[in-house]
């Protein structure tokens, strides 16, 4: 599904070059569940955005589903995101003035899907996250867990093969967080490749494999089951 070769990404921060990713090689087979861990500023968000075709590496190659995407134009990358990638964010990023159904519909509007099909898919997507009774609620009328479930429905409504989650439970209480993680696991069981960035060892433990980043370098790879605490993971 994903193959990274010698990915480098450097950006300027306050006049200083920051090496966010240094020679990252990685292979994620289709259907795998990977967690990316690392301290703040380790480059894990940059890696996620690179995987999500939002950021372009300065050098290196990125094959997504057999296609080299590192050098594609902005327009082409948008098309890849639209059809192959779903995003879930820590802070939900729902459009506040739109209802749950309208938020879920949004990716299909930009993809130009016909109205009748959109309606059908919205209902199915919200049903799959158990929110059929919240179709016409606005985000401010929903709890945090419900908002993240709407965001998850939005991320999956285009049926992407790759789902990227950036601290999906970071703003949620434990039980809502567990509900989201269960839904993610469920998607992964159904064949969606899942990459989750997290600080939380309990989230990482659900992954099949954990990648640990420190200062832009991949320092460790280990099975999810072996994750204990954060402190010992990040030690060099």
């Amino acid at each position: 599904m994903i193959r990274l070769e010698k990915i480098c990404r450097t950006y300027q921060l306050g006049g200083q070059p920051v090496h966010a990713l240094v020679d990252v090689d990685e292979h994620v087979p289709a259907g795998e569940h990977v967690a990316i861990m690392g301290p703040s500023g380790s480059g894990k968000s940059t890696l996620l955005y690179t995987l999500g075709c939002l950021d372009r590496p300065d050098s290196g190659s990125y094959w997504l589903a057999g296609r080299e995407v590192a050098r594609l134009s902005d327009e082409e990358l948008t098309d890849v995101r639209r059809h192959h990638i779903g995003f879930v964010f820590q802070s939900f990023h729902l459009v506040p003035r739109l209802t749950a159904a309208e938020n879920v519909e949004l990716p299909m509007v930009f993809a130009g899907l016909p109205r009748a099909e959109r309606r059908e898919r919205v209902e199915a997507a919200l049903a799959s996250v158990d929110l059929s009774d919240r179709l016409d609620h606005r985000p401010d009328q929903l709890s945090g867990g419900e908002r993240q479930r709407v965001a998850l429905a939005r991320a999956t409504v285009m049926q992407p093969r790759l789902l990227l989650a950036d601290e999906p439970t970071g703003n949620l209480d434990t039980s809502s967080g567990r509900q989201i993680l269960d839904l993610l696991d469920h998607l992964n069981d159904a064949g969606t490749t899942l990459v989750v960035v997290t600080h939380d060892p309990s989230v990482a433990r659900r992954a099949g494999r954990v990648i640990v980043l420190v200062d832009g370098h991949v320092v460790r790879r280990l099975p999810g089951g072996e994750v204990m605490g954060a402190a010992d993971l990040f030690a060099p």
Binding site: R81, H93, L106, F110
Partner: peptide
């Protein structure tokens, strides 16, 4: 700004 970033992420082109 946040909303613009979001719609770009979920597949809106610059043109859209």
């Amino acid at each position: 700004t946040e909303e613009i970033g979001l719609v770009r992420a979920i597949g809106a082109t610059r043109r859209q």
